[in-house]
Amino acid sequence: MAEKTRSIWVFGDYRNYFQNRVTLQLLSRATDLAQKIDAEVCAVVFGHEVDEWVGEYIAHGAKKVFVTDHPMLKSYSTDLYVALMERLALTYDPEIILVGATSFGREFAPRVSKRLKTGLTADCVGLDMNEEGLLVQTAPAFGGNVLARIVTPGRRPQMATVRPGTFQEIPHNYEAAGEIVRVPLPANLPRDRVRLISSERQPPREQKIEDAAVVVCGGRGMGSRKKFRNLYDLARILGGEVGATRPVVYSKWAEEEALVGQADKHIQPKVLLSFGISGAIQHTAGITNADFIIAVNKNPNAAMMKMADVAIVADANQVCTAFIRELKRRIRS
């Protein structure tokens, strides 16, 4: 029997720490959304020996967890997971399904949406409910510097993917109660057409920029690779990390690891110094959690300048040089 109450589902992506955080972040957002439409927050977990994660999701806001636990599901499989999700969704009819935009999530969510013949919005930077009870998905659109508010009026569930770091998780509460619904592996599950030959966990990516208290970000306005190197000196003195915009990474002024933005790293420094960056949404989506922003740009009207606490109208490289000098002087004195 399908349940009467509405529900918001979050796909439990637990394969490693990084994925799991986005699941927790989505549970937190789902909890806010659920209050607005009087719905229940559910997590969905497929795998083998996954009780640890089930507990974790309940502690982070899931009121109910659907679990299918079977040795066949030990490693992530798009074919099998999609089939399981389809069945679950057809049985319980969720209003909303949220999936983290991890590598797996990006393979999984589009197939699920296609099966369920419903819309899917990629990389939402905002999720809300409107008066009509529709999920309003805010996402960058047209490859430009604009955000679009997108809804899926006529189909259910409403589906969205969200990059890690977009929402904040709520602190865990191991006292929290949640219902666990154990769903047996269906007998007529399709054959998996992809076989895992080998899988090696790569050394966990160093999350340096993501955790740095000070980040010095540079954009195309730095002018050249050589001038851009100046930012590394500044970052070193500040004990911080260097971030970059996409054109900078494309021109190889900085490593790909430095790329900050919606598509890659979300940073949350206490102090962010931004040099020669226009402030395109794809970049600024990655810095929304910065506490204090100092931006340098020749153009006082650049979007980056509008969102700064201190906007410096000047040449980026000259300010960088002056900054280094002044810092050295002050640290010495």
Binding site: K117, T118, G119, L120, T121, V136, A141, F142, N145, V146, L147, A148, R149, I150, V151, T152, P153, G154, R155, I281, T284, T288, I293, I294, P300, A303, M305, K306, M307, A308, D309, V310, A311, I312, V313, A314, D315, Q318, V319, T321, A322, F323, R325, E326
Partner: peptide, 30 residues
């Protein structure tokens, strides 16, 4: 199935301090 309700440029404008002038002076003031 997806519909675009509207499109907007996110202007998260802050009431900020604007500094202009010679870089050295600006940095000192900062």
């Amino acid at each position: 199935p997806t519909r675009i309700l509207d499109v907007f440029s996110p202007t998260a404008e802050k009431k900020n301090i604007v500094l202009t002038g010679a870089p050295k002076k600006i940095v000192e003031e900062l």
